[in-house]
Design a protein around this nucleic acid. Structure first.
Lengths: 345, 345
DNA sequence: ATTAGCACTCGTTATAATGGAGTGCTAAAA
DNA sequence: TTTTAGCACTCCATTATAACGAGTGCTAAT
């Protein structure tokens, strides 16, 4: 790191430039810095320092006779070194309380609300990754007949999660055979792990014949795919903020970003990655692996939902976002979401 | 209606203007119309006709010496009268087949996929309203204990729908009392309508005492709110298309529109309204009640999911969208979604 | 009723001029 | 050696002006 070369005065100037640019979005000149009161030197001195900082790669000029704006390296340095860790403001905390005030809420609703809250407080796009335990111990299986050829298979895990699948039979199944199959499956599968299911063996054990056996086979098939439905989910909120905050970038590019968020696959990878890292992570510009995020900054962290199980959440905003505030809010929400969900999800 | 005054040649010209404007987005002049081959008159004649159409309110000029573009009235007329009902193209149909090819899919996934398909084919924002039958006959109730103070209440309706709620007890509940409550509730409530539940009476009937009674009370409370969770849902797809297609409008305005779609309450009202109307509906510009849609066009229709139960779906795009194509696709998707879901949801 | 012809309008593009914010550099002051 | 006042310079942004051309409305001829 070249960070050693930066003396105190340079730090002061750098912080000031970053903060002002975050605030106004305009390049900042030597004059305003000199008159800001933090520093008691003339604009000329500031200019010299700024030129040095530019040479070091921390500042850049949009054109020769404009003020300076921070490079991504500067943001990195700002986040790593200069940031005076801000806890979320009183107002933010108060706003966040609404999430935790409403109890007895549907679990899914918690994630959704967290994503909305996160996006509203930071005015960015927010995403919450809701993990699922990998082993699914079955609590119960339900078969709901709709008519003679359709029924819904429902699996409830011991964690209270629900997988559901509609199946269409190419034969007709009576209520009684459905009942029989249902009872048999509950007897055999309840309390066991659904992923290690030996369908063939189970079918043999059942002693079912004819239509009932066919039915059981179809249902077992559906059970397996219920697992997939029990996949992790992402809750996204505040994507419209991207249009507002990213007005510096081209329309084309904003559209691509929104599209990527909508598709969710990249975002899912990003958030899953975050679960591994398991600490506050700030990725600025090119540091992002996802192409569509290379002009943005990402702030995220993970939160626990059970022993060894973590979810993650984060926001996507402009590289010139208010990192102090964003970090504070992200950590705060993660902390509280974890606290509420832990051993409850 | 003033429609009577429009002779055949005016119709031809109007249609041509609308179609060309939809295609290119640029005002269209008299010359291109005259040379289009549909009409065998000189530009001057076309100009006279266009001046007349402008006076009637069908055309407008962005400025004195530009070509003409259609007013919303023209779009209305185009949709009502001039549209040569286009069935979806072979390519569109083929693309749509993917939705119906994958069977035995989770029901929710059908809606989601329909919204994605709709948005991709039309390159607009698409929304699918998934209705729920109003009466909820309970098929089964499940209580899943997580630890001593938390449990998940799950209600399965006779239609295979699942409502779920996590509750936190301020006392400790043993597995056995949970078992007892569960069995009692299933005995009493299964097969009945959950909305007309008399909690007090039921509690009295139960003969439960102490902790078990408290538990039953809390669970009954949660059951009621499970109904709310079983609310209608909206599936939205392709919102990023709005950024692409609406580039004529201001950023500010695009942002508001996206926000409105994200919030979903207005959209929900719109789609519910559509269920009442129960036929293809095109709303152009000011015809939309929702403020954020007044610069857009909406194309939607309803689809059946059961006898007397309808869902609805639609798209939001620029007023200069390809209505023929949009209508074709919307109807096609609605038709097929209805066919698949009917008596199965 | 149609159309050729023509003057006219007005947005678009190109070019030049002006102002000003901000810089880099130099030389003097501390 | 560090700081700073002074000044020339750069370059964006704004404004002014002109040329262009697509498209119109109107008139008069067909």
């Amino acid at each position: 790191m070249y960070y050693l070369e930066i003396d105190e005065r340079k730090k002061l100037i750098l912080r000031e430039v970053v903060q002002r640019f975050i605030l106004t979005g305009n390049p900042v000149g030597s004059k305003v810095i000199a008159q800001s009161g933090k520093l008691h030197v003339s604009p000329a001195t500031v200019r010299n320092e700024m030129a040095a900082l530019e040479k070091m790669g921390f500042l850049k000029q949009p054109h020769t006779s404009a003020g300076r704006e921070p490079t991504n390296i500067a943001y990195r340095y700002y986040v790593d070194i200069l940031l005076s860790q801000k806890r979320p403001s009183h107002g933010d905390v108060e706003a966040a309380e609404q999430l935790f005030a409403v109890r007895n809420k549907e679990i899914e609703g918690m994630f959704k609300e967290a994503s909305i809250l996160l996006s509203e407080l930071t005015r960015t796009a927010a995403m919450v990754f809701a993990p699922i335990e990998i082993t699914h111990i079955v609590h119960r299986i339900d078969l709901v007949p709709l008519d003679y050829t359709h029924l819904v298979v429902i699996v409830i895990t011991s964690m209270g999660q629900v997988g559901k699948r509609m199946i269409e039979l190419d034969f007709s199944a009576g209520r009684d055979s459905i009942q029989v199959v249902s009872e048999f499956l509950n007897g055999e599968i309840s309390g066991t792990d659904i992923s290690g299911l030996d369908k063939e063996k189970l079918l043999d054990q059942s002693g079912f014949e004819g239509e009932t056996k066919d039915l059981a086979a179809v249902v077992l098939e559906a059970l397996a795919s219920c697992l997939d439905v029990l996949e992790e989910r992402i809750f996204v909120g505040g994507t419209s903020n991207i249009v507002r905050e990213m007005d510096c970038e081209g329309r084309e590019w904003v559209q691509r970003l929104l599209e990527a968020i909508e598709k969710q696959d990249f975002i899912l990878a990003l958030l899953k990655d975050l679960v591994q890292i398991r600490r506050l992570t700030v990725r600025i510009g090119e540091e992002n692996e996802i192409r569509e995020l290379k002009r943005c900054a990402f702030v995220g962290t993970s939160y626990p939902v059970a022993k060894g199980i973590f979810g993650s959440l984060g926001i996507v905003g402009p590289t010139s976002m208010d990192y102090a505030r964003a970090i504070g809010i992200v950590e705060y929400i993660a902390e509280n979401l974890g606290r509420i969900l832990y051993r409850v999800m």
